[in-house]
Nucleic acid binder design. Sequence first.
DNA 1: TAGTGGTCTAGACCACGCG
DNA 2: GCGTGGTCTAGACCACTAC
Lengths: 231, 231
Amino acid sequence: MNSKQLISKIKEKILNNEYENKKLPTEDMLMEEFGVTRYSVRKAIQNLVDHGLIYQVQGSGMYIKERRDDCLVLSSTEGLVMGFSNKSVTSTLLDLKIVEADDDLANDFKCKIGTPIYKVTRLRYLDGVPFCVEYSNYNKNIVSYLNKEIIESSIYEYLRNDLKLNIGFADKIISSEKLSRKHADLLNLMENDPSLIINDTVYLTNGSIFNSSKVLYNYKITKLFDVANLK
Amino acid sequence: MNSKQLISKIKEKILNNEYENKKLPTEDMLMEEFGVTRYSVRKAIQNLVDHGLIYQVQGSGMYIKERRDDCLVLSSTEGLVMGFSNKSVTSTLLDLKIVEADDDLANDFKCKIGTPIYKVTRLRYLDGVPFCVEYSNYNKNIVSYLNKEIIESSIYEYLRNDLKLNIGFADKIISSEKLSRKHADLLNLMENDPSLIINDTVYLTNGSIFNSSKVLYNYKITKLFDVANLK
DNA sequence: TAGTGGTCTAGACCACGCG
DNA sequence: GCGTGGTCTAGACCACTAC
């Protein structure tokens, strides 16, 4: 049993309400149950804390938080499909093309000018409601192939499972802007309505950037969730 | 040398550009330099990674990221004053009163109805520009005293340094809304302009909630920054 | 005071990048 | 193949909560 499996096991038990009183077993008990050392238990626990599922109190125990099914969890985004596993996520491809990186794109990707870049535009729905407009760019030297079918399901699952990419981390910049007429129409909102915007730069574990994107979210149905460690 | 001191030391060196080629020394070298074990080095490093200062690449090394002085760092908020140490942060007290918790407040704080609660409203400026309107509530059983002077400087520094509170973590919910006329006037914006909003619930390390707040940020000058670990 | 999580040591082996 | 970060073990002691 490695750390990743341990995370899944404990997370599953939490989501199935298998723990009494919203309290986890002690670290000693988890070590015993799963036959691992304290290091592995604490590493798995740390992941659950970072993702906002539980919190720890020294001298007392580990407590399960109330679930927030209405929020996108910022720190753990595995794509919308995983994040909202209880809702139906669908996507419509609005545009797909390959361009050569200009100054701006080369800067985004820290790559050479002229590098081939996939430019993908999607409109995504949550239970059938327009949820976000996504402009996403992929370095074609890393993401060698994309098509309509992949794009309309889950790109990230494809990258992980089929292309075997090791996704490391994402820098996220969150802001708010007025919607243009075009974007408002797509999201069934009014021109100049607010929009919640996330700009992502996504890195592989080897440090190279394979994806940069700008996503405009429907402000009426979007909330983001994050846990800040202030210790 | 403990972990916290180690974080400060390394962070200071990073901010002073004391590392060549945007690269940190290896873990072995840091162990040697500071006379600690690998555990302590990696714990300190993890903090810097979480706060978006560096990233790690297995087999290669640890790299310093470009600084983002224009963003509020979500995961490490130590109050605005610390977050924007290069800018002048000032605050105007708009309202201060003590109320007894009603149903809603009791629910926010997971406390009994009737618990005394400080209600604080501030307008905060960044280099003199209206930056955010803050509605913040404090459980008076934990935060026993507040006054105008404290509120117009840095409440969190007071809570930490004077009241010796051990602040643990904050749950943050981020959204976007249209501004009311009143808030627009305060922020020098127009009615129905967008606003970036953060709702915080802040816990002590012992698990009790001492603060809940709603902050409306000026969308023209506010960006939030966060790092998502996707491994 | 008993029991819990938090910090730290000392060591081993593995996985990956890079030349 | 060497050097780097990633995972894991086994154990000690500390800090805090709760009774």
